[in-house]
């Protein structure tokens, strides 16, 4: 699913994704940063490592994550003890990851780092790209795929969770 070219394209853009941080102390744990150029398995947090182990923070305070961590977050979507809101939040974060990776692979610029600004609720996308025009943003804004009950179940998400590494 994750072809060499696509991953290299993502790597070139050097974007990162913060997933997690759903709530301080929540079962979903602390903030996770996914750098697409690491998804293939290079560097700290490589595929196969247990979630959070071996990860290091970069200069921006972001942390690279492994494929296993993303898998872990995806698996938590279906946990019974998740509240509807947490499930919706996680769906949103995963959807964000899917979208950002997809946009980068398609050659579209992705946003600079954004966060909610709340402790324990960081979420965002890191990329050095410029913003496209309004017209271009609308042209590329739509990604088909269903989301049910706050849970992303599109093929794209499956690619991120199960098809990389």
């Amino acid at each position: 699913m994750s072809g060499e070219d696509s991953d290299r394209g993502a790597s070139r853009r050097g974007f990162g994704i913060i997933l997690g941080g759903l709530a301080a102390g929540a079962i979903l744990g602390s903030a996770v940063v996914a750098h697409a150029d690491d998804i293939k398995g290079s560097g700290p947090g490589a595929a196969g490592e247990s979630a959070g182990r071996g990860s290091t923070a970069d200069a921006g305070g972001l942390r690279k994550v492994s494929r296993a961590e993303i898998d872990s977050r995806g698996a938590k979507r279906d946990e019974d003890k998740l509240s509807d809101n947490d499930r919706a939040r996680l769906g949103g974060r995963l959807s964000l990851a899917v979208d950002t990776i997809g946009r980068a692979r398609a050659g579209n610029p992705v946003s600079p780092l954004v966060t909610t600004g709340r402790v324990g609720e960081a979420v965002g996308v890191q990329a050095p790209a410029h913003l496209p025009s309004i017209r271009d943003q609308f042209r590329t804004a739509f990604t088909p795929g269903q989301v049910h009950d706050g849970r992303a179940i599109s093929d794209d998400l499956g690619e991120v969770i199960h098809g990389t590494g």
């Binding site: 979208d99 909610t116 804004a141 990604t143 269903q146």
Partner: peptide, 22 residues
């Protein structure tokens, strides 16, 4: 999130999808 928005549109059967705006 600040400067970032995703809208999931499930209103039209068969045309579901997510808009992303920054």
């Amino acid at each position: 999130a600040p400067g970032y928005l995703q809208i999931y549109d499930g209103r039209y059967p068969g045309k579901e999808g997510t808009y992303t705006f920054e």
